[in-house]
Structures are given as structure tokens and as C-alpha cells.
Design a binder for these strands. Structure first.
Lengths: 134, 134
DNA sequence: ATGAACACGATAATCGTTTTCATTTAGGAG
DNA sequence: CTCCTAAATGAAAACGATTATCGTGTTCAT
């Protein structure tokens, strides 16, 4: 085609195992937790590769990343590819994907009013889910 | 008096210098940037003390802390004590405090609809301010 | 089947932040 | 004012998550 960055993306055993795990797990986990789960199930994948694979998947939009209040990165494979946010149970980690078109427009409007460009935002909602509240 | 935690809080030269700087600067800066500024103005304060002082001020609510998308901590002394959010320049840290009553209500409504209680949320908007966009 | 580009992974390096611990200091008691 | 002790300081070391290195192993188009 051309000289731009075509992003290869090869199918390797390790990547297959990481993506397989992500499809089963439905919570936000750290790279190290995911690595631990892979080892538990006998998958021989290096921690470095887990990080690199997640990094790549975040860039391609296949995986969402957030951070704990401590600054640790959390990864999760979300069902919708569109931009969205999360409602997370602080007890069990159960996650609901949410969208807020009006809120999105509001952030852009506010940023624009103050002369800021190249806008990005982070929004996470934490609560206690009904099951954990009982 | 008793054995509870009365929170001492002594007045030291170092703490005075840190709080003085925070009152002059009203951008979100990292602990290291603040430490650098202190040294520039000739204040002899150790980096450790800067971290510890900021930590304490965050706990007492005197200072607000956020994180850059990279996970670095940012500190700032905010003018309003009421709940608010920030529009932060990713280049220089210039900050605008913003409120979004409608957005607040929206997060509560969404959380309630999904049966989540005891709601809390984080929202930060990052952009490039007009000066840095130059 | 081949080989060049890509991927793997053990290890070392980064880098922001915290801990350690010996020394200094604030500030109340006498 | 002097003493005393808990609190504070800070240089250096430890930490912990993430990233870079680089020699080896794999993928896959030809």
C-alpha cells in the first residue's frame, strides 16, 4: 500500500490466550492479575508480553483501560466499541457500560468556552451494586 | 487528653513554604515540579517533605489531587471547597474549576437506574490551553 | 521450505513515590 | 529561658508498576 504504519498484528499463541481470557473475564483487572490468571490455567505467557498485548489492544480500541485511585492501570474488554464510560461496583467490581451524549457535549462546550483544544476526558462512576448493598 | 488521633500539625518552615507556594501557583503541578519551584526561589525543602506535606493536605482537604492520563499525581490548592471538577492543560497545568450540576444529576440517575447506591464519581477534562496551543 | 520481519521473554532499567532511620526542631512543661 | 519528647526533616535506599533491551524463537508471504 504505502509507507505509513500498517500495524501488522500477527496471530500468536500468547495473544490468543490473552484475548481468550479477556473474553471470559468481565471485570477491570490489572495486567499482573491477568498474567496470574493465565499462569493458573497453565498458559505460559510472559508478563512483558501481557503488557505489550494489552497496550496494543488499548491502542486499537479492543480493550478499555482505566486507573485505580492508586494509579494502577486496569484493563477490560468492553462490548461496545463506541466511546463510553463505566459504572463500577466498589465492592465486587461489577461493571456497567454507560453512555452520556449530553455529558460529552457539555465537556466540549465548556472546554471550548475556555479556549482549550484537543479535548479528552475521563469519567468513572463508583457505587455499590444492589447485590453487594443487601 | 485521650488515645485517639488528634492530628498534631506543627508549623515548620518547610510547611510554610509549601503552602505559600501553593497559594501563588494555581495550576495542577506534580510534587516534583513544586519541589523544583521551591528550590528556584531558594527554599531548602526536601522532596520527601514536599510529598509528605502534600499528602497531608490532601487528607485534610486543603489540596486537591488528580492524576494525569499517565498516572502521575497532580496537586493544586482550589478556591472553592464545594465539589467541582477541572479543565486542565496537559502541557502547562493551567486549570479552570468547573461545575456541572446537570452532569452530577445524570450520574446519580444512571447509577440509580442500575441499582447502584452510595455513588461517587471522578471527572477530569484535559486539553491544550490557548497559550500552549499558540 | 525459506528468510526477513515480527514477537517473545528473562533481565535490566526507569521513574514516581514511599520507607528507613539518624538527626533536627517545635512547642509545651517546669 | 531551659528541658524534654514527640513530631518533622531529608538523604539515601527500597519499592512497585511499567518499559526498554536484546538474543532467541515464530509467523507467514513467497
Amino acid at each position: 500500500m504505502n509507507g505509513s504504519t500498517p500495524t501488522p498484528a500477527r496471530t500468536t499463541r500468547q495473544r490468543t490466550e490473552v484475548t481468550a481470557l479477556l473474553q471470559e473475564v468481565n471485570d477491570f483487572l490489572t495486567a499482573q492479575q491477568l498474567h496470574g490468571l493465565l499462569r493458573e490455567r497453565g498458559a505460559k505467557v510472559g508478563l512483558t508480553t501481557v503488557y505489550r498485548t494489552l497496550q496494543r489492544m488499548v491502542e486499537t480500541g479492543e480493550v478499555d483501560a482505566t486507573r485505580t485511585p492508586d494509579g494502577e492501570q486496569l484493563f477490560r474488554q468492553c462490548s461496545r466499541s463506541r466511546h463510553h464510560h463505566h459504572l463500577v461496583c466498589r465492592m465486587c467490581g461489577r461493571t456497567v457500560e454507560i453512555e452520556g451524549p449530553a455529558m460529552e457535549r457539555w465537556t466540549e462546550k465548556v472546554a471550548d468556552q475556555h479556549g482549550y483544544t484537543d479535548i479528552a476526558h475521563t469519567l468513572e462512576i463508583f457505587g455499590t451494586c444492589s447485590a453487594c448493598a443487601r
